[in-house]
Design a protein around this nucleic acid. Sequence first.
RNA 1: GCGGACGUGGCGAAACCGGUAGACGCAAGAGACUUAAAAUCUCUCGGAGCGAUCCGUGCGGGUUCGAUCCCCGCCGUCCGCACCA
Length: 876
Amino acid sequence: MATERYNPRDAEPRWQAKWNEESVFVTDNNDPREKYYVLEMFPYPSGRIHMGHVRNYAMGDVVARYKRARGYNVLHPMGWDAFGMPAENAAMQNKVHPKDWTYQNIATMRNQLKSMGLSLDWSREFATCDVDYYHRQQYLFLDFMEKGLVYRKQSKVNWDPVDNTVLANEQVIDGRGWRSGALVEQRELTQWFFKITDFSQDLLDALDTLDQWPEKVRIMQKNWIGRSQGMSVRWEIVAETAPAGTQEVTVYTTRPDTLFGASFLAIAADHPLAKEAAARNPAIEAFCEECRRAGTSVAALETAEKKGYDTGIRVKHPLDPSWELPVYIANFVLMDYGTGAIFGCPSGDQRDLDFARKYDLPVVPVVMPRDGDAATFAIGDEAYVEDGVMINSRFLDGMTTDEAFETVAEKLGAQSLGNQPQGERKVNFRLRDWGISRQRYWGCPIPVIHCADCGVVPVPKADLPVKLPDDVTFDVPGNPLDRHPTWRHVACPNCGRDARRETDTMDTFVDSSWYFARFTAPWEDKPTDPKVASHWLPVDQYIGGIEHAILHLLYSRFFTRAMRETGHVDLKEPFKGLFTQGMVVHETYSRGEGMQREWVAPADIRIEELDGKRRAVLLATGEDIKIGSIEKMSKSKKNVVDPDDIIASYGADTARFFVLSDSPPDRDVIWSEAGVEGSHRFVQRAWRLISEAAERLCSVDAAPAREGEALAISQIAHKTLKAVQGDYDKLNFNKAVARIYEMVNALAAPLTKVANGDADPAYTAAVKEAVLILVQIVAPMTPHLAEECWATLKQNGLVAKASWPAYEEALTRDNEITLPVQINGKKRAELTIAPDADQNAVQSAVLALEAVQAALAGQTPKKIIVVPQRIVNIVV
RNA sequence: GCGGACGUGGCGAAACCGGUAGACGCAAGAGACUUAAAAUCUCUCGGAGCGAUCCGUGCGGGUUCGAUCCCCGCCGUCCGCACCA
């Protein structure tokens, strides 16, 4: 009874066409059923999809198909994060317009995604570089501006003097531009900023409400926002040493309790006082310049020596005016945190201690451990940074660190310098405002106009969109918008005189900060239809890589708040559930050593196994190839497998099934040829078993038997259904895969029996019921195979439209269970008994067991522990 | 340095709330079918022992009738942040 092998190349396009024909995945905003919004992070159209995409979108698709079957109105859209530098780089290298490059890539990748059979609503598709999209982004920008959430300020940026552009921090490698290799300069430029810091506290507090986010991501965001509680303290400058017009220095500290341990003040090289001093003294100027340069290079300088320069300025201690301290410019003080000035307490801070030792400044211990001895406690090479008891601190002596903090805060709050309190409690955040200006062409133009008379004038909404010009050149470095002959020249909307367009474009992270809201009504003239957006949002399940744990997710949280303040949505948190999936990794292969090393693609080799030893051989020549470590798939290491090739040889279902099996979804999965073949074997096996029995399964119309062997089959089916349902709810795809394997193993013999005509109708009916359950529970993972089986079993309609089957609770319970019996914690016997047997019955049954009698050897048990339906332990 | 996660067979892993450690898959070995190969099917598969048994979840302790799971102390791997006052 030979059946044909399942042929995905024939079946998959056929079912995809069918789904399309019946618009199965097009979502109606007015559907009255409960909503479920599942979204995977949209891709950057770099050229082709990679296995990471396959895994990400396979997971999202399982959720979407499962929730659809569970009766939800599911929104599962797809789009393109399409602005960005790679398009411009391609334009410079290959003389292709960024727009053409991008849209061609989108066309290719759309086809690839479609060949995966994803249940996406393609009618809502857009790219962020579509005029229709960035038009509404400009609209949002103007609304934010009106609300005071956008501003301009001078700020230091990484400037590449060869490419004439600003570089993001990630694009500066060892102090050099990643493309040009030129030494990066720090430049003061006027930049546009979003006021994300307006929401620092709220962004921090609300993290506690995101209980469906990974703990890890919440902690990372918490650290990034970096709240600290302290005081700002004003120090009076000794008159004779004060520069003209300056009488005080304000520092920020989280340890006002250690004020009596102060031995110097330190300010950043960019602090106004330092600049003032530099203007008077070339040596100071040189020192500041040195500090700035060091600041540019990467954190590799962790061991950088603490260096300082005495400005000659002296300040009076806030709690003792007769006590004078020196003011240094120091290379370890940051201008953009706190006030750019600190007081140094060497005994309580390692950096301050290093600095004090170098410049011979006093080191006075002011805090000691609770069990310490004030007479002998001393500071050696390590500062004491813990809490403890105050010493050498006059009226603070004997207090705890916390009490001393409070006392100093009260005292400095009451004391005044000039007409103001000398110190104030202050909360500081590490989070900075979001600089969004990019001197780039391929981004969303910032919709403002600079007028000599009227200043910065927003483009009126009626004049939107500010479209990118198509006729630009990339033969010279720099921003093509800046040198376009006409684009920047425009009449001032206010006074009508000649004015200049803003030529900066927005950071591409802006584009991805609200696309999830746009998907809810991409046809709208306004950025959103607030009612519709508020119906669909938050995204119930968002799935993507951990690399976006901070930037994208934090920006989106800010954007949602800003959109709420401007009336575009009515919620604060965009993503209710977040899941960060692991990467797809692969072995690496190489030939040659050291500088001569050359990476070899998996497609060019063959793996051989001899006496348990694996070796790799180059297909072309038979040459031995070195098998290297397992790493993230990357073009540079050539350890990539093209999804197209896999889909062509095994089909999309096999690829989907494989990336979901084996590893838990949040961990990396190792791609291997053998593993894929295993998944493919499963697809073929399931098809073979089902199709061979299909005819007889279809012809049966009896009720399933609920006894004997047939009952066992039904129990397996219903138990598996219940378990897989739970696995899908928790995104435990690897466990669902394992349970489905188990079920297929269990159904193999019964199906063969049916196929051979050896089964009676009631038995056949039980097998049929089980098979239909199997088809439905694999459908989210291998949807094409499921449709093919569904049709072969002559079921009506599509699995994609079928509702999820309900399991019978009674069939998920066994009528007998086997309990392990332990004596003193060691397993000595097994007891088979009814699951609802009471404790006494279990006890006497256990004691009656021969093995137990033998093991006890006449001893009387001290205690018998019976854990219902779990275990029995006899203690002697 | 700070913060977090993880450590289980040859490999990926599973084990619910503290209750039979290793489900499921991969690899390997043996066999059946075949002229042969592929495919498929059956069996074995943590270690020691002929065996009843004993030992095994990174290492050392502890709590418990019972610990992969909880507590304390180490070791190792990975990730994030990094002069944040």
